[in-house]
Structures are given as C-alpha cells and as structure tokens.
Design a protein around this nucleic acid. Structure first.
Length: 422
RNA sequence: GGAGAGUUGGCCGAGUUGGCUGAAGGCGCUCGCCUGCUAAGCGAGUAUAUGGGCAAAACCUGUAUCGAGGGUUCGAAUCCCUCACUCUCCGCCA
C-alpha cells in the first residue's frame, strides 16, 4: 500500500507509475473522495471537541449538585449529528482504503520500462546449456519412465495439476528441501521458520494477495482462512503490527512450505509436468531491513538464490523485470530462470523482490530508528528455490542417453550417496 | 465439543457504585545531576494513527485508540450484546 499522504501530494508521480505498469487506473476518484473525507473529518472533529468539553462541564456541574438539562439536550442532538457524519465518513474511508489497497507499488527508478516479459533485460547468465548428443526427453516422460512421478494417479486422486512423487523421486524432492534450507541457514545466515500453511485474511492483505487477487487463492470453506500461495505470506506476517528493535535488523528468515495456487487464468499453460501445479514445494527467503539497505539486500538475496543453482550446476540467467511485468507489490524484481531443454528456453525458478515499505505499511511492520521513532521496515523475499521446478531442471539437464539421471554432486549426501536414478 | 477465567502502554500491574485516566504505581529505556569505577540516589522525559496550523521538518493543536466490532449515555477502560484470541478443567485426538 502506498502512503495516502504521498498519493495526495504527488498524484502525478503515482499516475506516471500506473502508466508505466500498463494500468488504466486513474486517481481522480481517489483525490475527490480524499478531499471529501478530510473536509468532513475536520468538521466532525470540531464537533467532537465541543462534545468533549461540554460533557466535562456537565460532569463538573453534577458533581457540585447542579443540573444542566439544556446542555444535555443540546449534546444529545450534537451526538446524533456526529453519528450521522461518522457514518458518511466511514463509507468514504472504506472506499478510499479499497482504492489504496488496489493500487500497485511504484516501480523503483532502476526498473527498466517495458510492456511485457519480452522486454525484461538479461542481467547475467551462468553456465552453458548442455549440448546433448541425443534427443533429450522432457522431465514428465523421464519421470514416468523412471517411475518416480505419477501425474496420472495425481489426476485420479485429486485432479489436474497434482502429482505423486515416488521412491527416489520423493526422496529427491525431500533432499532438495533439506539441501536448500541447510545452505541458507549455514552459509547465508537465514534463520529457519516452519510456518502454518493456512493464514487468515489479514495476513493475505498484509503481503498484498488480497483483496485484489482472491481468485488466485484456495480458500477454506466456512472459515476466513486461505492456503498459502508461498511461505512469503506467513513469514512476512510473522511481525505484523509489531515494532521491532532497530538492532535486530536485518532479520533474515528462510522457510520451507507447500504452496497452493488456483492458477486461475493459466488454463492451457504448462499443462504437462511439474512446472505449474496447484500444490508445489518451495524454500523461501524473507528479509526485513532498514529502508536505506533494502536495494543492497535485494542484490544479496538474489545472489543467495543463485548460489543454489550454481551448487546444483544448473545453467541459468538473471533477468530484471520491466515495469510492465513487475508484480503488484514489488518495487523491483529479479527473476532467476533455469535452462529447461524441454522448453528450449529459460524458465522462471525464482523471483526475488524488494517491496520497500509497501507490504510493511499494509502489515504494520515497523522498527525504532535512531531517533526512537517508529518507522516502516522494508521487506524482501525470493524463492530459494521452487523445488518442483528444480526437480524438473535436474531431470532434464542431467539425463543420460539410457534415460537415467545423474544426481548433482552437492545433492548426493542428501540422498544417502545416491549418484544416479535409473 | 462441554464448563469456567482472562485480554489495559516496551513489560508488569492499578483502575468494574461511568465524569480532567492516554490512562496511577513499578520495571525498563533516554537525557541531565551527583559520583575514584560500578552500583545506588536525585530530577526530567518516554505510545500509535490520523486531521489542522503549513509546502516540508521541528513544534503547537484537534480527534481516535484500554483484544475487535456494535449498543446504552451529555459522557464508557468501566454498563449491555456479538465475535476473536489466551489460560484452566473435562472429553476427543496425531
């Protein structure tokens, strides 16, 4: 959420940002409502001031044994008027709040201007896509042939975009989770969190999923709880409505969680394999830091996520999301894209973002600055990494002509020394 | 699921015959004084949000906030209703 005062005083800056994002939203309605609200607020607060003063006076008179029926009568009427204006104001406030909650973050100055993913500049590339001397298979074929992935039964037992991992496949998934958590906790100083996989509405609003993206989420029937689309939600909301001691910053957390996404609007995309599932596993990195440090922390966080791909010897590239492709809450985002032979392309496996104070304002996450004043923190997060897509990348990039798959060296200790599947 | 108790400032904890209580007292913290050092002592300060003064900072000022929402009242931390959460006992369960 943007600062209401900032929007009020810099409407053109906000409007320009909306245009750069490719949004057609205008601020006219907001500015009009805001003006109305402040006008009414000023009036009603003066009325309340009068009521407070007169009520005190009535109290004093009563204490000294006197009565003041005409004052009571007058105040009764005033209170009625206050109530009416308060109701009007409440409606105005709700409208304003809704508009504010639906406004996306302002892209940072360093974000390239562009319309869509095709405009995302490549920042750097690591590793070389392997030159296969045979026709490489897609991971879904490899997985089924090796009997480690079972999409068909996933469909039977639950539905489309669900799968079973089996035998060494299941262990590979588990190994990757442990490998990544160990890497980030022991090498990068993140403190591990194991979060709830369901959260309440306030948490979803805090990180920006609600109210705008309700269709992307699975909601628990009969409760105001949602399955988390990423561990970012529970972990960022850990400190919702708290004022943190400044010395604690930056706070670094990593968390494994299952992630649940409705994938509304993704019908027909990535229908085969592990790439786009309703349920997938992910290790997430989350940071809370001082405003002045956040862009440097984003660079570090991105490097931390890259380290996973490097350790697994998976070729990848880093792209900077352009203004048109930037997520709703983000001020700046780097995507890590891993090479997938089946796509003959790089495919997103991690998204690392700086949200500046956008989430912190929604979630009320603050710290005490040097002057002892409460100030909003900056929040960041990034996948470190998506597990399912990592499995896909390993299967495809490390496949052998006979259909077996070599396990990257770094991962073998987590598989009891296993060097090859199949 | 059944029964009971509770939810006040960074923390502890007063306040339940409604009326200068944004909130006593204590602890903690900050600054100052004092002091060979430390400790103790003394003094002052110490919430957040949102409006106005003003374009902004400092500052001044209004309003709101005692789990959340609603009600009664001239006036609610205090009375009433609904909900959430925490704790204890019972039941059930991994």
């Amino acid at each position: 959420m943007l600062d209401i005062k900032f929007v009020r005083n810099n409407p053109q800056v906000v409007q320009d940002a909306l245009v750069k994002r490719g949004s057609a939203v205008t601020l006219e309605e907001f500015l009009k409502l805001d003006e109305q609200r402040r006008e009414k607020l000023f009036i009603v607060e003066q009325m309340k001031n009068k009521r407070n003063l007169v009520s005190e006076e009535i109290g004093r008179l009563k204490k000294s044994g006197k009565d003041a029926p005409e004052m009571v009568l007058e105040m009764r009427e005033l209170s009625q008027q206050i109530k009416e204006i308060d109701e009007v104001n409440k409606v105005l406030e709700e409208k304003l709040q809704r508009i504010l909650l639906d406004l996306p973050n302002i892209p940072h100055d360093s974000v390239p201007v562009g319309e869509c993913a095709a405009d995302n500049p490549v920042v750097r590339t690591w590793g070389e896509p392997r030159d296969f001397k045979f026709a490489p298979k897609p991971h879904w074929d490899l997985g089924e042939a090796l009997d480690i992935l079972d999409f068909e039964r996933g469909g039977k037992v639950t539905g489309a975009r669900f799968t079973f991992y089996k035998g060494p496949g299941a262990r590979l998934e588990r190994a990757l989770i442990n490998f990544m958590l160990d890497l980030h906790t022991t090498q990068h100083n993140y403190v591990e969190i194991f979060p709830p996989f369901m959260v309440n509405r306030d948490s979803m609003i805090g990180t920006g999923q609600l109210p705008k993206f309700a269709d992307d989420m699975f909601k628990i029937e009969g409760l105001d709880y949602y399955l988390i689309p990423t561990a970012e939600v529970p972990v960022t909301n850990l400190y919702r409505n708290e004022i943190l001691e400044g010395e604690r910053l930056p706070i670094l957390h990593c968390a494994y969680s299952a992630c649940f996404r409705a994938e509304a609007g993704a019908a027909g995309r990535d229908t085969r394999g592990l790439i786009r599932m309703h349920q997938f596993n992910k290790v997430e990195l989350v940071k809370f830091c001082r405003p002045e440090d956040s862009f440097e922390e984003l660079e570090k966080l991105t490097r931390n996520a890259e380290r996973v791909l490097q350790s697994l010897e998976l070729p990848y590239r880093v792209v900077a999301l352009c203004t048109g492709d930037l997520g709703f809450s983000a001020a700046k985002t780097y995507d890590l894209e891993v090479w997938l032979p089946s796509y003959q392309d790089y495919k997103e496996i991690s998204s690392c973002s700086n949200f500046v104070d956008f989430q912190a304002r929604r979630a009320g996450i603050r710290f005490r600055n040097a002057r002892g004043k409460a100030q909003l923190v900056h929040t960041l997060n990034g996948s470190g990494l998506a597990i399912g897509r990592t499995v896909a990348a390993i299967l495809e990039n490390f496949q052998e002509p006979d259909g077996s798959v070599t396990i990257p060296e770094a991962l073998r200790p987590y598989l009891g020394g296993l060097a090859r599947i199949g």
